[in-house]
């Protein structure tokens, strides 16, 4: 069953990419949305396949909601928001799947309240990848290392904007040339810089303490019972 699913996903993505090279009227807006949707679904599918753990589900829901809510207290101060940082630190502590799920769910849930749009799958994908990549970094390092984490957070400020630019570019710009591509990416540069700077600020101010809180919580969550004979 699992293999069929993988093959199907790869086949559909490959088919779309092959179609896009052929000189027929390619609808990039539709194709890209399908590919992004399949990517998000794949992560969800993997998450489904793992056994049901009530603590894990409650934690992911809580962190996703927290990441979405964290947009509020700072909205009054400036346009930066710690959502990316929170998704990343969760991934860093808990792992790839948790990181992706928190990012994707945070995007989906916050849009229930801010308004859904064609940007929702793209946001789910981008924030999900933020969490997943931070988790990969976390699995390589021991403990919380501020510098690598901050560098990654800084990069994600730009990467997030660059992924989000794609949907705008393929959807509403024609012709899709290097020139219009550059123009679209130049236009988003100030916003991406602000996002990246915000990520640095939050990593510096909250990184260490959030890591400790989440780590302590992770230890509390995974209690294992030993057999009496083993003691």
């Amino acid at each position: 069953m699992k293999n069929i699913y993988w093959t199907l996903i790869l086949a559909v993505t490959g088919l779309l990419l092959v179609l896009s090279v052929l000189p027929v009227g390619v609808n990039w807006a539709l194709f890209s949305a399908v590919i992004i949707g399949l990517a998000v679904l794949t992560f969800f599918w993997r998450f489904e396949k793992k056994g049901a753990a009530s603590k894990e589900i409650a934690l992911i829901a809580t962190m996703a909601s927290f990441a979405a809510v964290s947009r509020i207290p700072f909205a009054a101060v400036m346009s930066i928001q710690p959502t990316t940082f929170i998704v990343m630190i969760t991934g860093y502590v808990f792992g790839v799947q948790e990181g992706f799920m928190v990012g994707a769910a945070a995007a989906l849930v916050s849009n229930f309240f801010l308004g859904q749009g064609p940007w929702t799958p793209w946001q789910m994908f981008s924030w999900g990848l933020c969490g997943a990549s931070a988790a990969l970094l976390g699995s390589k390092l021991k403990g919380f290392k501020l510098l690598p984490f901050t560098v990654l957070a800084f990069c994600w400020g730009y990467l997030f904007g660059w992924i989000m630019n794609l949907w705008h570019w393929v959807g509403f710009v024609y012709p899709l040339t290097l020139k219009t591509f550059t123009a679209a990416y130049m236009a988003s540069f100030p916003f991406d810089t602000l996002h990246a700077l915000g990520n640095i600020i939050f990593s510096f101010l909250l990184g260490k303490s959030f890591y400790q809180v989440l780590k302590r919580f992770k230890n509390k969550m995974f209690v294992s019972y030993l057999d009496q004979n083993q003691l």
Partner: peptide, 26 residues
């Protein structure tokens, strides 16, 4: 999607609760 949907449903419910929390703590 049993788990994924439960996560989103729970998070949707927690959102207003946390907004209240933020207001209270502020």
């Amino acid at each position: 999607g049993k788990k994924a949907v439960l996560v989103v449903t729970l998070a949707t419910r927690l959102f207003p609760l946390m907004v209240q929390d933020v207001r209270r703590v502020t």
